[in-house]
Simulated scan of single mutants.
Amino acid sequence: MLNTFRVLALGALFASAPLAAHDYRIETFSQGLEHPWSMAFLPDGRLLVTERVGRLRIVEADGRLDPEPVAGVPEGFIAAQAGLMEVALDPDYSDNRWLYLTHAQGSLEANNTRLIRARLVDGELQDLEVLFTAQPLKAGAAHYGGRIAFLADKTLVLTLGDGFDWREQAQNPANHLGKIVRLNRDGSVPQDNPLLGQQGAAPEIYSLGHRNVQGIFFDAEQGRLYSHEHGPRGGDELNLIEPGGNYGWPLATFGVDYTGARVSPYTELPGLVAPLLHWTPSVAPSSLMLYRGELFPDWQGDLFASTLAERSVRRIRLRDGMLAGEEVLFEELGERIRDVRSGPDGALYLLTDNPQGRVLRVLPSE
Rank of each mutant, 00 (worst) to 15 (best):
W299G: 09
P355L: 05
W299I: 06
A324Q: 10
L208T: 04
L277Q: 11
H230W: 08
H210M: 02
R117E: 03
D122M: 05
G146E: 14
A305S: 15
I241L: 14
P297R: 10
L196S: 04
N246M: 01
V130H: 13
L131N: 07
Q198D: 05
G146H: 14
G271I: 04
E327H: 00
P203E: 01
R233A: 02
S282I: 03
M1K: 05
R97D: 11
N172M: 12
P203A: 02
G215V: 01
L156P: 00
M289K: 01
Y266L: 11
S306Y: 09
G357W: 05
A82R: 03
G161W: 09
E237A: 01
A17E: 15
Q31E: 15
E229T: 06
V121M: 11
D62Q: 05
D153Y: 04
A118C: 15
L329A: 05
T155F: 06
V189W: 08
G260A: 06
K138A: 07
P355G: 08
P265D: 04
L115Q: 07
P67D: 09
G63T: 07
T307R: 03
E294L: 03
L115P: 13
A15T: 12
N354F: 09
H228F: 06
L131C: 00
F14K: 15
V362C: 00
D90K: 10
N246W: 08
M322T: 14
A324G: 13
G271W: 05
L84I: 02
V213T: 15
I337F: 03
Q198K: 11
G321P: 05
L48H: 04
T267G: 04
G357P: 06
S94N: 15
R315F: 02
V213F: 05
T259D: 06
W98I: 13
E331K: 12
